Amino acid sequence: MQQRTVTMPVKRTEVYSRPTWKHMATPCQPPTYNGQMCTRVQVVHEKAYRDIIDHKTAQQMSYDCCSGWSRENPRADACMKREYF
């Protein structure tokens, strides 16, 4: 039996604040006699999502078969196949 450290990618979704330019209607400065609205551009922060890949380490056990025995397939946990010489 051997223990080894492996690094595995793990995907997660992150929420972040994204700056965005927005056109805003505001009263003109100086104010006009008829209350006319002017457009200006303003930076606003919107909630956005992005995928992040983290690399996490984990311990993994691997087993070696005794001489004369092997696994029936690579994913098998036990050494149940007898090898004949």
Rank of each mutant, 00 (worst) to 15 (best):
D51I: 11
V43K: 08
P30R: 01
V41L: 04
Y49T: 12
P30M: 00
V43I: 14
T32D: 03
A58E: 12
N34W: 02
Y33D: 04
I52C: 14
C38Q: 08
Q29V: 05
Q42P: 00
K47V: 12
Q60A: 04
I52P: 01
Q42L: 01
Q29Y: 12
E46F: 06
M37F: 05
T57M: 15
C38I: 01
D51E: 10
D54A: 10
Q59R: 08
A58P: 01
I53A: 02
Q36K: 10
G35M: 05
E46H: 14
A48M: 06
C28T: 14
C38L: 09
P30V: 01
D54W: 11
A48Q: 12
C38F: 04
D54G: 01
R50F: 11
Y49F: 09
H55A: 12
R40M: 10
A58F: 09
D54R: 01
Y49W: 12
H45V: 05
T57K: 07
M37N: 06
V43P: 05
A58T: 11
G35Y: 13
C28G: 03
V41F: 04
Q36D: 05
T57F: 07
T32Q: 00
Q29E: 12
Q42R: 08
Y49A: 06
I52V: 10
C38G: 01
C38D: 00
D54N: 13
C28V: 15
I52A: 07
A48H: 15
C38R: 04
D51S: 09
A48K: 13
A58I: 02
V41N: 01
K56T: 15
Q36T: 01
T39P: 00
I53T: 15
Q36E: 08
R50H: 14
T57G: 01
C38T: 03
Y33K: 05
M37I: 06
Q59E: 10
R40N: 05
C28W: 15
A48C: 08
Y33F: 07
Q60R: 14
R50G: 02
R40L: 07
Q42A: 11
Y33W: 02
P31S: 04
R50V: 07
D54F: 09
I53C: 06
N34F: 00
P31M: 08
R50A: 11
N34A: 03
G35N: 11
Q60V: 14
T32S: 03
P31H: 02
V41S: 10
K47R: 10
T57S: 13
Q59C: 05
K56D: 13
P30S: 08
H55L: 15
Q42F: 02
A48V: 09
I53S: 06
D51T: 14
Q59I: 09
V41E: 13
